[in-house]
Amino acid sequence: MAGATTLHLGGDQATRFESRAATRETPLVKWLILGTALSFFTIFLLMPLIAVFIEALRKGWETYATALIDPDALSALRLTLLAAVIALPLNLVFGVCAAWAIAKFEFRGKHFLITLIDLPFSVSPVIAGLIYVLVFGAQGWFGPWLSEHDVKIIFAVPGIVLATVFVTFPFIARELIPLMQAQGKEEEEAAIVLGANGLQTFWHVTLPNIKWGLLYGVILTNARAMGEFGAVSVVSGHIRGETNTLPLHVEILYNEYQFAAAFAVASLLALLALVTLGIKTWVEHRAAVAYRNSQDDAS
């Protein structure tokens, strides 16, 4: 499922196609395709993005600022950051481990394992929340034991963190596996033969090779962790000031017809998305440069 989200290193090659008669359309066809594609892009992607910011500022800067410094909004922001800060390192360690085992060794069932790692991508976010309710909820497997020991997971912060971990589970692993497979294991084997230990090899040989993919996986994980709605909504219980994340806060404000405030908080999340896309573009650019340099060195 991750095929669509992985880093790709295509430079701009339009001139290659446009300079040759055989790969060029007549101007009419070209403008028709370009016009249709860009109209579709504008209507379905660009306008929703622009609408967020304009609706947010519809009632002026004062309303905007008030919505953002509202104590409930701030506590939602804190919880959102907390969930991301916990989910990120957990999935980072997992992603690196999984990629190391899968890319550097041969074993049976490898493809099946990759499919299993992809599972959270193809599970509806609502089901991602439901499974933890079934395990830790009041009527769940551990429900009675947990309530006896006064531990709250569902409708509390741990449930939100768990749901966040689940929905962001595959991102880093899926980014690193193809990258590390493409790089082979000769460099690492050379380092080991020359006397480096495992950690040194990873730190000095593997990491420099995968750093851009790793960074991309981290920002994708972060964006999804901060923006998750469905899964978190199921396990949160929507207690204002306690178990509300930013996306849930947007929903509450919206359902209370506080549209300007809802869009103000939403604009924060939209900014996060834009920053994510900016970093992604930059990382792709850096990775492409590094790739070209390594090709030049090789030739």
Binding site: P247, L272, A273, K280
Partner: peptide, 8 residues
């Protein structure tokens, strides 16, 4: 659409 939270 990958990066923008679905609620937004």
């Amino acid at each position: 659409p990958f990066a923008l939270p679905t609620a937004v």
